[in-house]
Amino acid sequence: VPLGPALAYRQPNCDDPETEQAALAAVDYINSHMLQGYKHTLNQIDKVKVWPRRPMGEVFELEIDTLETTCHVLDPTPLANCSVRQLVEHAVEGDCDFRVLKQDGQFSVLFAKCDSSPDSAEDVRRLCPGCPLLAPLNDTKVVHAVDVALTAFNAQSNGSYFRLLEVSRAQLVPLPPSTYVEFAFAGPATDCAAKDVTDPAKCNLLAEKQYGFCKATLTEKIGGEDVAVTCTVFQTQGPDVVTVDPGADPAVPVPSPPDVPVASLVVGPMVV
């Protein structure tokens, strides 16, 4: 018995609105399912094939290129508001394969596979000879810089104790000799208060987790080092902002503004 009509695919343009809709749905999918690193945005649709699907619908087989943005995946900032990591900052590209089902006008991802890779050092150096390159995240200077920065942040955040979740990016800056790091933390869902912590490993994460993200620079200087750290704690309604006067006595908790319920920890970009 002859087989049914061979399932033939159609090849729309890569820039067709329908193809772009499928690609955007696929990028939203990876950003909502990635557990570490940064959000990615659509840069180019490389290939598309559309297969009919029995009994209804169509499956878009896509190959797309993405680019890393500066928003951590835990950051509730909408993707449209996240800027793309620039080439001189050592950009990171993603290569993704997707199969996206279109049925009743809705797109749903059936399969997703992505690999990301940083731009080559030559490309960065060609554009900016003096720009720092990405450093291995387990580099001793990186690990030390994250440790110092998180300790400094904990020392300032009245009473809460945040634990490291992920070192997401690091660069060894030649001049001035310093280490730049970006990392995510979780907390203050631990049962430790910053001032009492002797062995962080003994702190247990409590149920109500909060996530946050820090950018820090550890600068080496004669006889010591300086750390500057800026952190944002992601609230459910998006990052809130409060600044802490670095000169204030950390032992004296900063009173939350009268309009902010005491229960909600309003912490945001804080320079230590």
């Binding site: 945005t41 180019q44 950009a91």
Partner: peptide, 27 residues
């Protein structure tokens, strides 16, 4: 047999459907 003089067929520019446009820059 009437032979149609060969008509130089100039292929119309093939619209390259893929890859699509680059939205930011190529790494």
């Amino acid at each position: 047999t009437v032979v149609q003089p060969g008509i130089a067929v100039v292929p119309d520019p093939v619209l390259r459907p893929c890859p699509g446009r680059i939205r930011y820059f190529k790494v």
